[in-house]
């Protein structure tokens, strides 16, 4: 393809090819501190391409392709090419990852132990992970937790943090401007701005951590917390995984071991300040 970029995010290598220069230039800037794929051979290929040759220039719209594709994935305008690249990488992970049990969760680490936060979209797991990373936690990822069936440890996948709508201002109030990507307005998910993980998170991204606590955060409620039974955690995590079934018995063993050995709590919070306090309290009581 005309333009391309390679990057390693945690233990996973990507190659992104594009019919246009612009998305590649943005990736080069935002991922400048990241290493290249191991052995120069990426795990996955993403392609950003025009549906028809003339659509490279005329009302250019970006189709998302790659090793693994969803036929119904709709194209995005070229101005949102960066988002298309990120969606393409997520898609490869969601559909193609077979080494690690993939859990839709954000992960932060402190003292070698990992805190995993999962829940439906809008529960604020990306925002919480970004804010915790500004308070001494290591950001391991805002989208996917990679559970290693061989070791029971979590691997980091610290891609750009995808901040949406009001959470953009919340994080921008605490972080320097040079850690943000361009403001992408009118995307299918509303306004999006990417937040670059800090240098420490990138430098230590190949270090796994032992899972120590699983949280299910819910935004918009009065502060409350409760324990979650292993069977409920099991069901919720299979629903939060795109490759649980594909991993077969390795996935079953990894997940049953996780839910029977790591405590889980559900926390409700009305605002981010309360959320941070509740996370710290749950962490202290784990």
């Amino acid at each position: 393809m005309n333009h391309q970029f390679s990057v390693a995010i945690g233990p996973v290598g990507f190659r992104i090819g594009s019919d246009w220069r612009a998305p590649i230039a943005q990736l080069e800037t935002l991922y400048r501190a990241y290493p290249k794929p191991t052995d120069g051979v990426p795990d996955f290929t993403v392609r950003l391409f025009a549906a028809r040759p003339w659509r490279r220039v005329l009302r250019p719209s970006v189709m998302i392709g790659g090793d693994f594709v969803l036929p119904e994935a709709a194209p995005l305008p070229l101005a949102q090419g960066l988002l298309a690249a990120e969606m393409g990488m997520n898609l490869q992970m969601a559909l193609g990852q077979r080494r690690y049990l993939l859990l839709h969760a954000s992960v932060v680490e402190r003292d070698g132990e990992a805190l995993m936060m999962t829940g439906v979209s809008g529960a604020g797991k990306s925002t919480l992970a970004a804010l915790l990373s500004l308070r001494g936690w290591r950001l391991m990822g805002d989208e996917f937790a990679l559970l290693d069936p061989e070791t029971g440890q979590l691997h980091a996948f610290p891609r750009l943090v995808s901040l949406k709508n009001t959470s953009i201002a919340t994080v921008a109030a605490e972080a320097p401007a040079d850690r943000f990507g361009p403001l992408l307005e009118g995307t299918p998910k509303g306004t999006i701005r990417h937040f670059v993980p800090d240098a420490h998170a990138i430098a230590t991204m190949i270090q796994p951590a032992r899972p120590a606590l699983i949280l299910f955060p819910s935004f918009g409620f009065e502060p409350a917390a409760r324990d979650v039974a292993p069977s409920e955690v099991f069901v919720r995590l299979t629903q939060a995984s795109t490759n649980y079934v594909a991993l077969g018995e390795r996935g079953f063993d990894a997940l049953t071991k996780l839910v029977t050995s790591v405590p889980a709590r559900a926390i409700d919070y009305p605002d981010t300040a309360s959320a941070i306090a509740q996370v710290e309290a749950a962490w202290a009581a784990r």
């Binding site: 191991t38 051979v41 077979r98 594909a246 077969g248």
Partner: peptide, 21 residues
């Protein structure tokens, strides 16, 4: 094969084995 290629092929092998089941 290069180590990362080996890992990719190992994942692929596990994947078709599960597919066979």
């Amino acid at each position: 094969v290069p180590p990362n290629v080996g890992r990719i092929l190992e994942d692929a092998w596990r994947s078709v084995e599960q597919g066979r089941v």
